[in-house]
Amino acid sequence: MDRGRPSGGGSAIDTLAPRQLAGRVWLFPGDPDPYAVRPTVAVVADDRGSVLVDAGQSPAHAREIRAGLRAAGLPEPRWLVYTHHHWDHVWGACAWPGVEIVGHEAGVAPLRAEAARPWSHRYLREQVRDNPRLGPSFRARALAVDSWDGFAVLPPTRTFGDELVLPTGVVVRHVGGRHAPDSSVVLVPDSGVLLLGDCWYPPPAHLRTPADEPDLAMARGLLSGDVEWYVSAHDEPIRLAEARAALTG
């Protein structure tokens, strides 16, 4: 895979190459460097309009993904599903014009609050000065965003409570949890893929306590014989047998 870096201004856009996981599901793998905070983005390809799962962690990241979609000949997204409201999953949304943004209702208020903040590199520095625990997250944001011109945090335009089935058969299901109250998983039944976002992870680093651990009980509850692939946003995809061995062994 060509792991392009965010491009600035009017320079050429780097291309990320998607890889097909199973059936209609294609992945743009994230950055393995945890300090980059760049998650995997999935596309469920469909001629009626693809479903994009998470927006990318910045407009630059989203532009790379859009270029990769075009290069691979995959249908343009019609829907953008947020697995949850954290910045690395939603900050690319403003670079996806014309899509319907789908998210759990619990994510609306925090995203509206984020949208009202005066984002800039200066603001990020000021926030870290006042709360040093924000340092890793906010430094990653500063590196991710090449320009604040036209940047906006976008709440969902379509919300749901427990479950939503999109016209392409993709199922979005709320699971909640300690990482984010709006965490949702995305099931692609015909491809045997469950996209987990960050749902079973502990809380974000700046909110984490020494007692916080991954939610293995939640992860075990998501195991199903109808699912062959499990995709967490910051880990490599694993098959059902591997997931069972890791969680029940």
Results as ranks from 00 to 15, higher is better:
Arg24His: 11
Thr248Asp: 10
Thr209Ser: 14
Gly103Gln: 09
Ser50Pro: 04
Gly221Cys: 15
Asp88Trp: 06
Arg19Phe: 08
Leu194Val: 03
Leu240Asn: 12
Leu143Asp: 12
Ser147Arg: 08
Met218Asn: 04
Gly221Arg: 10
Pro18Ser: 12
Arg139Trp: 11
Arg220Pro: 02
Arg19Ser: 07
Tyr35Gln: 15
Ala60Pro: 04
Ala152Lys: 06
Gly23Gln: 01
Tyr230Arg: 05
Asp226Glu: 15
Ser137Val: 15
Arg158Trp: 01
Thr168Asn: 11
Trp96Asn: 00
Pro136Cys: 06
Pro203Tyr: 04
Gly103Phe: 06
Asp47His: 10
Pro34Asp: 10
Val227Arg: 01
Cys199Trp: 02
Leu74Asn: 05
Pro34Glu: 05
Pro189Gly: 08
Arg78Trp: 02
Val165Tyr: 01
Asp130Pro: 01
Asp190Arg: 05
Leu187Thr: 02
Thr83His: 01
Pro189Val: 09
His206Phe: 14
Ala152Cys: 04
Val25Cys: 08
Leu187Trp: 01
Glu163Ser: 12
Val227Trp: 01
Ala45Ile: 03
Pro189Asp: 09
Asp130Cys: 03
Ala219Trp: 14
Asn131Gly: 05
Leu21Lys: 02
Gly192Tyr: 02
Arg19Glu: 14
Ala243Gly: 05
Gly30Leu: 06
Leu80Tyr: 08
Leu164Arg: 04
His206Pro: 12
Phe151Ser: 07
Leu69Phe: 06
Val165Glu: 13
Pro77Ser: 13
Phe28Trp: 01
Val41Lys: 00
Ala115Met: 10
Ala140Tyr: 10
Ala22Gly: 09
Leu247Phe: 13
Trp148Lys: 12
Ala106Lys: 15
Pro32Trp: 06
Glu236Leu: 14
Arg139Ala: 14
Leu16His: 09
Trp200Ala: 08
Thr40Gln: 01
Trp119Val: 06
Gly169His: 10
Arg66Cys: 11
Ser7Leu: 07
Arg112Trp: 03
Arg208His: 09
Cys94Glu: 06
Leu187Val: 04
Ala142Asn: 15
Phe138Cys: 04
Leu111Trp: 12
Pro214Ala: 07
Val90Asn: 07
Gly23Glu: 01
Asp149Pro: 00
Leu166Phe: 11
Pro34Gln: 08
Asp47Asn: 12
Tyr201Cys: 07
His121Arg: 15
Val172Trp: 01
Ile65Arg: 00
Glu76Trp: 03
Gly150Phe: 11
Glu236Pro: 02
Gly8Lys: 14
Val193Gly: 02
Ala42Val: 00
Ala219Arg: 13
Phe160Gly: 00
Arg173Val: 06
Arg117Met: 14
Leu134Cys: 05
Ile101Tyr: 03
Ile238Tyr: 02
Val231Gly: 00
Pro156Lys: 07
Tyr82Thr: 07
Thr248Asn: 08
Cys199Val: 09
